[in-house]
Amino acid sequence: MKRPARGRDGQQWIYDYILKTTGRAVHFEMDGRNLPIQAKSIRMVSKHLAGEAEHAECLAKEADKRGDIVSARGLYRIASEKYREAQHFTIPIISDWRWELYESCRKCAERLYEINEYPIELVSIPSEISNVPGVYHKAVVEGRAPAVVFIPGMDNTKENYPNPLENEFVQWGIHVLAIDGPGQGEMLERGIYVNPDNHVTAAKAAFEFLVSRSEVDPNRIGICGRSFGTFWSMRAAAAEPRFAAVAGAISCYYWDRLTIFDEAPIRFKQVFMAMAGMEDEGLFDEMSLGFTLKNHAKNVMCPALMATGEFDPLNPLEDAEAVFKALPGPKEMWIFEDEFHPIFAPAALAGQATFQFVAEWMRNAMNGELDNKFERKAYVRKSGEGFFG
């Protein structure tokens, strides 16, 4: 008889009740439903998200067939995102059903790339651990331009961000290489599991890829992440001194507390253990002690930007501030008043995407516009006061 793998797995009924009442699988502190109304438990979510994805894909193909490329782009994007979300919520976490959904996600995304307004390439980058899958978004600019390696959050995938229909980095003339690191997307499908260090290997390989491109300025290559990608990008910047800047928002800047595994909804730990290929909770807890920026932040010499919500339950502010304090180079921190983890487009920015400002900051940093002693911590009120100084 198979028993629960984690001590908190017995809370599943509570988790399902909260999911039913809030319409959310995580981030219960946020307002508003973001799951299909039919989903009353976590086991129902993938089915109904997949149904929504199939609907959008069907419309996309019809628009595509009629030559309505504008509508097709938007619909392929919706379908790809719905399939991506559906594969994230499968039970069991690793299953053939998950990889079928992810294949559909990729197919919709790949058709979008083919008809997109700017060029996008699918790439496979050799590394010491395995070939690193990537989506390379090329800005349409003259001469050599800056570029950024982008690392998605936790078990997110390279298809999610940047959005080809509103790519903030490309708008600023910056090429972007989004990758699946260990435990993510295609790497997880191939059985390449995550540990505290191997995203650094993937990021270094991504750096070398960008150096090899004739359209990229090798002296202006940065790295950026979202959610758990903020942790991995900071680790990479500490290990690879050639990165010209590092930035991230929706923070996971860990120092002493892994609230994401110990206090947040059990789904985070369930998924991350699958990403690590581990079933023994004790061994996972021991391994996860390596997810700290202590002894690494001090090695980040390039300009660094950290953006976080004031009450982020996955990354307590005191932890993020300890990381910020330890950074020796030029640095800036944005703390958004009364915000939680998902600071995608906070009220303080009037609903504008946070990464619009992150992209501008990285452009300025990679262009050498920050003084070596630059340091700024901004408490950004709901009114926007404090953001621009």
Score class of each variant (00 low, 15 high):
3 R>C: 07
4 P>I: 08
9 D>A: 09
18 I>D: 05
31 D>S: 13
36 P>V: 04
37 I>Y: 15
38 Q>Y: 04
39 A>W: 01
40 K>P: 00
48 H>Y: 15
48 H>R: 00
50 A>D: 14
53 A>R: 00
53 A>Y: 02
60 A>M: 05
70 V>G: 04
70 V>T: 14
72 A>P: 02
73 R>D: 08
73 R>K: 13
73 R>A: 06
75 L>V: 01
75 L>A: 05
85 E>M: 11
90 T>I: 06
91 I>P: 00
91 I>M: 14
96 D>P: 03
103 E>I: 12
106 R>F: 03
107 K>C: 07
107 K>M: 03
109 A>Y: 15
110 E>F: 15
110 E>N: 15
113 Y>S: 15
113 Y>H: 15
113 Y>G: 11
114 E>M: 12
116 N>Y: 07
117 E>M: 11
120 I>Y: 03
121 E>L: 05
127 S>D: 09
129 I>Q: 09
133 P>H: 15
133 P>R: 14
141 V>W: 01
145 A>P: 02
146 P>N: 05
149 V>P: 06
150 F>A: 03
152 P>H: 14
152 P>E: 05
155 D>V: 12
160 N>M: 15
164 P>K: 10
165 L>Y: 10
169 F>V: 07
169 F>T: 06
169 F>G: 07
171 Q>C: 09
172 W>A: 13
175 H>F: 08
179 I>M: 06
181 G>K: 01
183 G>P: 02
185 G>H: 03
186 E>Q: 14
186 E>I: 08
195 N>P: 02
205 A>P: 00
205 A>M: 07
206 A>K: 07
209 F>C: 01
210 L>S: 04
225 G>V: 05
228 F>W: 09
237 A>M: 01
237 A>I: 05
239 A>P: 03
239 A>Q: 10
239 A>G: 08
240 E>W: 01
242 R>G: 01
243 F>E: 00
245 A>F: 09
247 A>L: 06
248 G>Y: 08
252 C>I: 07
255 W>G: 02
257 R>Y: 11
261 F>C: 01
265 P>A: 11
266 I>Q: 10
267 R>D: 14
269 K>T: 11
272 F>N: 14
273 M>L: 12
274 A>K: 12
276 A>Q: 01
282 G>P: 00
287 M>W: 07
291 F>W: 14
293 L>T: 05
296 H>V: 03
297 A>E: 04
298 K>V: 06
298 K>W: 01
298 K>L: 02
302 C>T: 03
302 C>Y: 02
303 P>H: 06
306 M>Q: 12
309 G>Q: 13
310 E>K: 03
312 D>E: 07
314 L>Y: 12
317 L>H: 06
317 L>N: 11
326 A>C: 09
329 G>C: 02
333 M>N: 10
340 F>D: 07
340 F>G: 05
352 Q>I: 06
352 Q>L: 09
375 E>F: 05
378 A>L: 13
380 V>Y: 13
381 R>H: 12
387 F>D: 04
388 F>P: 00
388 F>S: 12
